[in-house]
Design a binder for these strands. Structure first.
Length: 473
RNA sequence: GUCCCCAUCGUCUAGCCCGGUCCAGGACACCGGCCUUUCACGCCGGCGACAGGGGUUCGAAUCCCCUUGGGGACGCCA
């Protein structure tokens, strides 16, 4: 079997959005799975809307997702000579011709066609004129008047298009630049692309492109048109549905692997399996199980998958991504043993890295801020003996381990005749300032002996002070 | 207007190609419960769908037709 060569051809008119990322992913996965090649090509022929910033943003998002490419990025604007070469060939062979009709004239033709209950179309006026190239001529492809063009699509099945429904579309503008449908086909042919997975909004372009392949005598690639990703109201995904670019999801604290997992499951399935690591996907991905119907983007499911991926990673893997989000909230931490210990305590209770960063704040503060309600309820004089004993016993520990800590608190429970629940909450407030945190022991362990003692002492001080204040009042 | 695509729980989907094993399975969300030092995790249970109508057949979520609904495309955009 020939090497599978796929591609992803974004137009740099914005950031990489969800839908684009998914198509890129499908192509990338298929190439990886088959040991094929994945080519990146920038379709920037719309010079009015294309920007360098967009190119950079798209490349960056792709890298973040871990989608790498074997060739490229190629830029269509650097390939005009190649396109023109082929356009000339097409004109010479009679498959295409020059047309001097103005846009206004063509609009009239479209109106006429519509009036007759047809699709708005150019009527082929210049077809037989045998015009030469001049300043305001475009090149049009001569499309058949009858017959059908059948798109063999691996996800949609066979779809027949009446050739009479297609007009002689423009392949080269009057300024000499190539149009989308032509540039795509020439690129795909010259780059050896043999598998094209793209959004089904392109299905309608496919018969046109097939005509170009045919006129050039080139082999057809395998087509697969995947359904689009819709917003929560089933309309095309757009800004009003919330975040739609990959970069925004990074900022919201999602892991690239979770993103990939979610995206691939949106329109592809492997039985009942929901959770996939990247390698797993490469092994299991196939074209046979791509779905045929459009799907809605659901953030809840992404969140759920994200928390599973967070749980499934090692603290070490999570550290750098977390550091990024810690920095965003003003905490400069390092990827060290302390941070990894912190992460371990936070993994099961963080849905996103933003959650995790927020949950980690207390670990990095020199003096924790006591939540008013929490302090009022739990940091009261009657707990003083417990806190004092905690300090004394922990200070006396030879080994600061979970086992030893458990012994310490068992002893305190015995001596004070209090249940653990009565001890844990005040302690939690002393350590974190709030009533919600990781489990006591794992937290104390992650914090370290020194800081633990310091914080309990500070709580003792806090209680004594406020007690004094109350007495005076 | 014309053409094309699509149609299973609220959502993502399995099953459909090769009809019976499906009074339709899993996941997310939601609701209960268990676990428990808080919050979570985890576990158990509940709610909840074959768009409608006709065929074909002993038998249809699965095959055919129509209707309805949704999406997309009709550019000297990509």
């Amino acid at each position: 079997m020939d090497t599978i060569i796929t591609r992803f051809p974004p137009s740099p008119t914005g950031t990489l959005h969800i839908g684009g990322a998914r198509t890129a992913l499908f192509n990338w996965l298929y190439a990886k799975k088959t040991n094929g090649k994945f080519i990146l090509r920038i379709e920037d022929t719309d010079t009015a809307r294309s920007t360098k910033e967009s190119v950079d943003a798209i490349l960056e998002s792709l890298k973040w997702l871990g989608i790498d490419w074997d060739e490229g990025p190629y830029f269509q604007t650097e390939r005009y000579d190649i396109y023109n070469e082929y356009i000339e060939k097409l004109v010479e062979s009679g498959a295409a011709y020059y047309c001097s009709c103005t846009p206004d004239e063509v609009n009239v033709m479209r109106e006429e066609a519509k009036a007759r209950g047809l699709k708005p179309m150019y009527n082929g006026k210049c077809r037989q004129k045998n015009l030469k190239k001049s300043d305001n001529t475009v090149v049009r492809l001569k499309t058949p008047d009858s017959g059908v063009t059948i798109v063999k699509d691996i996800v949609k099945g066979d779809t027949a298009f009446q050739n009479s429904e297609m007009d002689d579309f423009i392949i080269q503008r009057s300024d000499g630049s190539a149009m989308y449908n032509l540039a795509v086909v020439i690129d795909d042919i010259t780059m050896g692309i043999n598998t094209i997975i793209r959004g089904d909004d392109h299905l309608i372009n496919t018969p046109k492109q097939m005509l170009i392949y045919k006129a050039l005598g080139a082999d057809l690639p395998v087509f697969g048109h995947v359904p689009m990703v819709l917003g929560s109201d089933k309309s095309r995904l757009s800004k009003r549905h919330g975040a739609m670019s990959v970069g925004e999801y990074e900022k919201m604290g999602f892991l690239p692997d979770a993103m990939i997992n979610y995206l691939v499951r949106l329109g592809w399935s492997h039985g009942d399996q929901e959770f996939f690591e990247k390698n797993d996907l490469i092994e299991k991905f196939d074209l046979e199980h791509l779905g045929r119907s459009a799907s809605m983007f659901d953030t809840d499911k992404l969140v759920s998958l994200n928390s599973k991926h967070i749980q499934n990673k090692s603290p070490e893997e999570l550290a750098d991504p977390l550091l990024f989000h810690l920095k965003n909230i003003g905490i400069n931490a390092r990827n060290d043993a302390f941070t990894q210990g912190v992460i371990e305590t936070l993994q099961p209770r963080s849905k996103t890295l933003v959650d995790m960063a927020q949950g980690a704040v207390f670990y990095y503060q020199d003096t924790v801020q006591f939540d008013e309600k929490a302090a009022k309820k739990f940091l009261k004089p009657d707990i003083l003996p417990v806190l004092q004993k905690s300090v004394d016993y922990i200070e006396g520990l030879e080994n600061y381990t979970q086992e030893e800590l458990e012994t310490v608190f068992k002893q305190i429970m015995d001596e004070t005749d209090l249940k653990f629940g009565k001890i844990a909450q005040p302690l939690r407030v002393a350590i974190t300032g709030t009533t919600v945190s990781p489990g006591i022991f794992e937290m104390l362990l992650a914090l370290g002996k020194e800081k633990t003692i310091l914080r309990i002492k500070r709580a003792i001080h806090f209680i004594s002070e406020s007690g004094l204040f109350q007495d005076n009042a």
